[in-house]
Amino acid sequence: MASEPVDAGWRVALVIKDAIHRYGIDGMLRATALTASSRHLGFGGQDIRGCDGKGLDIVLAAAADLESEHIRDAVRELCGRGPGLLLLLDGPDSLDAPWIATCGAKGFLDWSALEPRTLADAVSDVMAGKFYVSAGLAQRLVTRAGQVSPSGPPQRIPAGAALTARELQVLRLIADGLSNKQVSRRLLISEHGVKRLVGSILAKLNCPNRTLAVVRAKDNGLLAA
């Protein structure tokens, strides 16, 4: 069960280009009766950068609208000033976008299953410091990865697939939102070497992408401090 909100008034900024979707989300937020305010940010880098982030708890953005690196950087800068980022996805295939693992998102929601209660749970968890993945999206992800049958529980990572110390270093940096290039600079190794390590991590964890690898590693306690 999701945690209760930190206080009785969430402050949410929306970065959603489609006006119908944007106002629909705004209505859902108000339906939770737990949102103090929602702010529609203009869809442009300068508009987003013009928001100082003060008083904001959450930035809720549509992943499909962040394909532009210019917009992504503006959202990343905004979230770097405090608010957590929740991404709305069109399905698990959206997680294959190369920028998803480095965008710093604190949770993922599936457009197809979005409703006020789900939205409230997601914001509550993010505000409590938890990583949120909507149930339907998580099940579709692990099913696609071949980890479970559609009705079965996720399997634990087998002992024989233990990550090396270097692979754990890389995985922790990926979880912190670093790109391959940033990881290579941090660890003083080549970017090709980082790609090889990431490939090994995905193979050992039986994950199709970096994002699911981070989620599965957290579930299995591999990223515990």
Results as ranks from 00 to 15, higher is better:
169 Q>G: 05
106 K>S: 15
214 V>Q: 05
96 D>A: 13
194 V>I: 14
216 R>L: 15
132 Y>S: 07
87 L>M: 05
158 P>V: 12
165 A>D: 05
141 L>Q: 06
182 Q>R: 12
159 A>M: 15
110 D>T: 02
199 G>Q: 01
191 E>H: 11
167 E>S: 04
158 P>Y: 12
129 G>D: 08
174 I>G: 08
220 N>W: 13
215 V>P: 03
133 V>W: 02
114 L>H: 03
207 C>L: 04
134 S>N: 00
164 T>L: 06
117 R>A: 14
141 L>K: 00
111 W>Y: 06
180 N>C: 10
142 V>K: 05
135 A>T: 12
126 V>K: 03
167 E>T: 02
166 R>S: 13
165 A>R: 03
187 L>H: 02
182 Q>C: 03
99 W>Y: 12
85 L>I: 14
164 T>R: 04
221 G>T: 03
170 V>P: 10
101 A>K: 12
165 A>W: 00
154 P>L: 07
220 N>M: 07
174 I>N: 06
209 N>S: 15
199 G>T: 00
209 N>L: 08
121 D>P: 01
153 P>N: 05
218 K>R: 15
177 G>Q: 02
206 N>P: 08
105 A>F: 01
210 R>N: 11
150 P>Y: 03
215 V>K: 09
181 K>S: 12
204 K>G: 01
173 L>I: 00
215 V>H: 11
97 A>S: 09
87 L>E: 02
123 V>W: 08
157 I>C: 03
127 M>C: 15
192 H>E: 09
170 V>Q: 07
168 L>S: 05
208 P>Q: 00
154 P>M: 08
159 A>Q: 14
156 R>Y: 07
106 K>C: 14
120 A>C: 13
195 K>W: 13
148 V>K: 05
223 L>Y: 04
175 A>D: 09
218 K>G: 15
84 G>H: 12
156 R>M: 09
201 I>D: 08
134 S>D: 12
206 N>M: 14
213 A>C: 01
210 R>Q: 13
122 A>K: 01
172 R>E: 10
174 I>V: 15
176 D>R: 10
180 N>E: 10
144 R>N: 06
113 A>L: 12
92 P>S: 07
182 Q>E: 13
108 F>C: 03
127 M>A: 14
206 N>I: 15
209 N>G: 15
184 S>A: 11
146 G>P: 06
155 Q>L: 15
145 A>W: 04
189 I>H: 07
98 P>Y: 02
95 L>A: 11
164 T>W: 07
126 V>F: 10
111 W>V: 07
199 G>W: 03
219 D>Y: 06
121 D>V: 00
142 V>N: 06
153 P>L: 10
88 L>I: 15
185 R>N: 08
160 G>C: 08
180 N>Q: 12
106 K>D: 11
88 L>S: 05
191 E>C: 14
184 S>V: 00
93 D>S: 11
118 T>I: 15
137 L>G: 00
175 A>Y: 01
191 E>I: 09
151 S>A: 11
111 W>C: 00
142 V>L: 13
124 S>I: 05
115 E>K: 05
108 F>Y: 15
